[in-house]
C-alpha cells in the first residue's frame, strides 16, 4: 500500500477533511487532516482502509502550532499509516479517538498531561505519569526546568 492507494481509498470512502496525502519514510502514507473532521474520519480509516490497530498517539509543540499524530497498523496490508493534524497554539484540542480505537485512551491521557493537548469527549482524561494536582505540561516548549533548590516540595499525604 502506497500513498496513491491510500488517497484513492479515502476518496472512494468519502473521507472528510483530508488536506494532503504524502509519502513518508517508514509508513504507507502521511495523511494530514483537519481536526474538525476527526470524529467522522477515524471510523472510515479503521474500517474502509483496514487499520484496526492504533500503535501510538503523540503530540508535538511547534511553538506556532501544535501537532497531534496517530500511528496505525494494518494486519492485512502489513504496513503503518500516519495521521496528523495541526492544532491551534492557543487552545489545542481535538476529538478523542478512543471511541474508535480503545487503545487511544491511555495514549491520549499521556499526550494531554505532557504536551497539553485536550481531547474532547475522552472518557477518563486524568493524569497518567504525574501525580494528581500536577499543574504543568512539561513537554511544552515554554516549560522551564528548575533547580531543585527552587522547587517547592509538596507531598500529598494519604
Amino acid at each position: 500500500m502506497d500513498a496513491d492507494e491510500v488517497r484513492a481509498k479515502l476518496t472512494g470512502a468519502g473521507a472528510p477533511g483530508i488536506l494532503s496525502v504524502d509519502p513518508f519514510p517508514g509508513v504507507a502514507a502521511r495523511v494530514r487532516f483537519s481536526p474538525d473532521s476527526a470524529a467522522p474520519l477515524f471510523p472510515i480509516v479503521r474500517d474502509a482502509l483496514g487499520f484496526p490497530h492504533l500503535s501510538t498517539v503523540g503530540g508535538i509543540d511547534w511553538v506556532e502550532r501544535y501537532e497531534v499524530f496517530y500511528l496505525l497498523w494494518s494486519d492485512t496490508a502489513k504496513t503503518y499509516l500516519l495521521l496528523s493534524a495541526d492544532l491551534d497554539a492557543k487552545a489545542p484540542h481535538i476529538e478523542t479517538a478512543s471511541s474508535t480505537w480503545p487503545s487511544a485512551n491511555w495514549h491520549e491521557r499521556e499526550a494531554w498531561e505532557l504536551v497539553g493537548i485536550g481531547f474532547d469527549h475522552h472518557p477518563d482524561l486524568r493524569h497518567l505519569l504525574m501525580p494528581d494536582g500536577y499543574d504543568f505540561h512539561p513537554l511544552q516548549r515554554a516549560f522551564k526546568l528548575h533547580e531543585p533548590e527552587e522547587l517547592e516540595v509538596k507531598v500529598r499525604h494519604v
Binding site: 504525574m130 501525580p131 507531598v155 500529598r156 494519604v158
Partner: peptide, 8 residues
C-alpha cells in the same frame, strides 16, 4: 513524584 506519597 508519582511514587512519592506511596513511599511516605
Amino acid at each position: 513524584w508519582k511514587v512519592a506519597h506511596k513511599l511516605v
